[in-house]
Design a protein around this nucleic acid. Sequence first.
DNA 1: GGTCTAATCTGCAAGCATTGTTGATTGCCA
DNA 2: TGGCAATCAACAATGCTTGCAGATTAGACC
Lengths: 155, 155
Amino acid sequence: MHSPEELTQRFREVGLKVTPQRQAVFRVLYQNHTHPSAETVYEQVAEQMPTISLRTVYQTLNDLTDMGEILHLDLGTGSARFDSNVEHAHHHLVCEGCGLVRDVEADLDSLKFNETLPSGFLVSETEILVRGQCEHCLAQDQNRRSQDQHSKAGA
Amino acid sequence: MHSPEELTQRFREVGLKVTPQRQAVFRVLYQNHTHPSAETVYEQVAEQMPTISLRTVYQTLNDLTDMGEILHLDLGTGSARFDSNVEHAHHHLVCEGCGLVRDVEADLDSLKFNETLPSGFLVSETEILVRGQCEHCLAQDQNRRSQDQHSKAGA
DNA sequence: GGTCTAATCTGCAAGCATTGTTGATTGCCA
DNA sequence: TGGCAATCAACAATGCTTGCAGATTAGACC
């Protein structure tokens, strides 16, 4: 995405007004590269601007998505995630435990489909999703298991 | 997934009861390879058994998913899709127009990640999603465009 | 700076997919 | 065949997202 200042320009060019609420959303997204949900963006904006509504955050995220400034991702984590990195093509790693998302780069050209794709189908995007458990959630699982061991031994 | 008869066995083995409702869901899934949504499964079962509830269909789909008989897919189409083909690893092609899903096989081993994946992360699944427009939706789009041309010319 | 108007804001209600609850029903083992 | 736990249907509730309506405000024009 562009910087908050550049976004201000772009919004005016397209005929959209630049409100303090929108600028606050710009700033949060520009600094947050963790693929936040709308709710998370809302919480972070609300720290600076407690009166903002979740509805406005959704609206601004949609505007930015329509303008191609951010990406709207559905990674199966329940809520949509927003990705401010549209400059460099990349894919995603998703922790099924905590919903953490990380970017990964992959060489799509190296990917071989065993059969050719159906001829009539016009591909717009090929997406790679790596699911699993992050370091933190793995450790937590191990702790829980050893706890269970102890309580079983104690009982 | 196993055949309806084999599923009857498996359900009893696990201590789940085999009701007519469940058998009807088994049959629909066994024959339908279009990756139906819960709603679609419900509609098809309801043709034979109009009193079944959507809740029961969801419950049975969840049971089958837990047993590994079917796959629960989130392809960003709004509702979850259920895939009865768990025997052969494959990936999916999704039409962004009508939600049609097709299986595609891809050689995951050929896929190169430019940086290695984070060391602490335990990968459970790597999923490839090809989005685009199917033949049918492409044709429809073209029709619509030429219609627009005509009405513009006529006006 | 002041005025004006359309765009935007907030708060709330509604929509959709899915799950929780509950009392009635039924599979299935003895 | 009886009995009980599992399951059913109907309905309420959830979580995420969007629609709506009246109050507010950005920004063009004077």
